[in-house]
Amino acid sequence: MTGTRSANTGEARPRAAFAAALAELDGRCNATAARRATRYLTASYDKALAPVDLRTTQFNILHRLALAGKTTITALAQVSAMDRTTLATNLKPLERDGLLAIRASDADRRARVVEITEAGLARLEKAVPLWRSAQDRFEDAFGEADAAELRAALRAVLVTGFDPWAE
């Protein structure tokens, strides 16, 4: 039995050994630490980007498209470290708002191509100073060198071969 239940409230509590295992997990789980930090930072960047009606994920998609030009959804998913389904969900409001266009590829009709529109570029241009302000505030608080080391460590995670989408 992994837990006990209070007779009065029905509230379950883990037994001591399981509670200790959970406490260790809380301090060691890389995914939990990364998710907590991501939510924290994302909230800050989302707040900064709100005046141009973009969320951090949308900003990053437009940024990638502005750099890449026309690209397939598969390639965009890879460079964004997103699965295709999540990316497709994030593309819909951007397409609806005219910030990007999605169409069948000329080379392979089964593939979908996505590209930023003029409206998307204009929105991105308004968003970059807001992003820069959030970036500067974070680096002032965290330290510029520490922020650079953090980004390097996070980029290193992406090349570990620990592929979550491998089949």
Rank of each mutant, 00 (worst) to 15 (best):
A81F: 12
V157A: 11
L62P: 02
T9P: 04
A19W: 05
A7L: 11
A33L: 05
T32C: 09
T71I: 05
A119E: 07
A48P: 01
A134R: 01
T86L: 06
K126S: 10
G69K: 03
G143N: 02
D97Q: 15
D140T: 13
L154F: 08
F18Q: 09
V113Q: 03
A23W: 06
R112V: 11
A107N: 15
A12R: 09
E167Q: 13
A145I: 09
E24L: 01
H63E: 11
P129D: 05
R103K: 09
A147P: 00
L124A: 08
L99Y: 03
V79Y: 12
D146G: 00
A34H: 07
L100T: 13
S133I: 04
G69V: 12
R132V: 12
E139Y: 04
T2D: 15
L67R: 15
A37Y: 06
A66I: 10
A7C: 07
A127L: 06
R137P: 06
S105F: 00
A119L: 12
Q58Y: 02
E115L: 14
R110W: 13
K70A: 10
A20V: 13
L54F: 04
H63C: 08
F162E: 13
A166W: 09
R36A: 10
A122Y: 02
V128F: 04
L25M: 07
A127Q: 00
G120L: 01
D108I: 14
D163A: 06
C29M: 02
R39K: 12
G69L: 09
G120F: 02
Y40L: 14
A12Y: 15
R28S: 07
I73H: 02
R137V: 03
D46T: 00
T2R: 14
A37V: 00
R13W: 14
T56S: 07
A147Q: 02
E125T: 15
L22S: 09
L87M: 04
E125Q: 15
E144V: 09
R110N: 15
R55D: 08
S44P: 03
E144P: 01
R151F: 10
V114Y: 00
K92G: 03
L54K: 03
A66N: 15
E11W: 14
S80V: 00
D53N: 14
V114K: 00
R36K: 10
A141T: 07
D136S: 10
T42G: 07
A7T: 13
I61N: 01
A122I: 10
A50F: 08
L158M: 13
S80D: 00
L99G: 08
I102L: 03
T74S: 05
A148E: 11
D26W: 08
L76G: 00
R36N: 06
A81Q: 12
A152D: 13
G10M: 02
A77E: 02
A107F: 09
L124I: 12
Q135I: 07
L41I: 05
E115Y: 08
R103A: 04
T57C: 06
A153T: 02
A122W: 01
A16Q: 12
C29D: 10
Q58A: 05
D83A: 06
